[in-house]
Amino acid sequence: MATEITLEVARYRPGVDSEPVMQSYQVPLREHWAILDGLTYVKDHLDGTLSFRWSCRMGICGSCGMTVNGEPQLSCATFLTDYAPGPIRVEPLHNFPVVRDLVVDIDDFMTKLPKVKPWVVREVQSPVEEGEYLQTPEELDEYQQFSMCINCMLCYSACPVYSLEPDFLGPAAIALAQRYNLDSRDEGADERRDVLSSPEGVWACTFVGECSAVCPKGVDPAGAIQRYKLTAATQSIKELLMPRISRRLNSRSQG
């Protein structure tokens, strides 16, 4: 095995570069080294000006999403040896404005997230003194997968709809809305409906499915979106056919 590998890293210095330029660095090729280890090696020993985000280096904080050889990846969970002999092309996540080098601006997501009310909505909050809301393991299983989202933004980076229609709520935000809709303790499905059923909501999704393919946590946002489409469509049809009954049923089942 070679002892070094080339990282071709996208550099963008606002005010200096009009668009990113690629810069090559030679880093040690070692077993167990993630792309992130290569980048920190660059930062520590070769070029202190390279900027990128990272923190937990164990695939749970969601900071270090990057485009590696064209694929959105967590750079802490993608390994140099898997790309040997290289070179490895490291770019910022696609579909986001680039702030600097490998750092992208995710404010759009941070603005959209609260719109889907990703918190428990209840008509009446029971006092904690009365103990927990009961939830069986089966009920937990209903939404658990969608609660695994680490907000790493790989799904937005892989989504062509988001790139073409920036107003799209996007995979992670919808999956998190579904995470609460499917939680037996939550009564907020009605409040989330307008946003989710809007043209910028689930109906913007054309089911490319890449969000789920690139998700490092197996969340399956594409599944969440399609399932919500089914729910929304069924509900609309019900309301069309039996407006009074369905409204009563809805208000009962959703508190």
Binding site: W119, V128, T136, P137, D186
Partner: peptide
């Protein structure tokens, strides 16, 4: 728990 933390549960 009331805020939605998915604590593991007994049957």
């Amino acid at each position: 728990e009331h805020w939605g933390c998915p604590w593991s549960r007994q049957p």
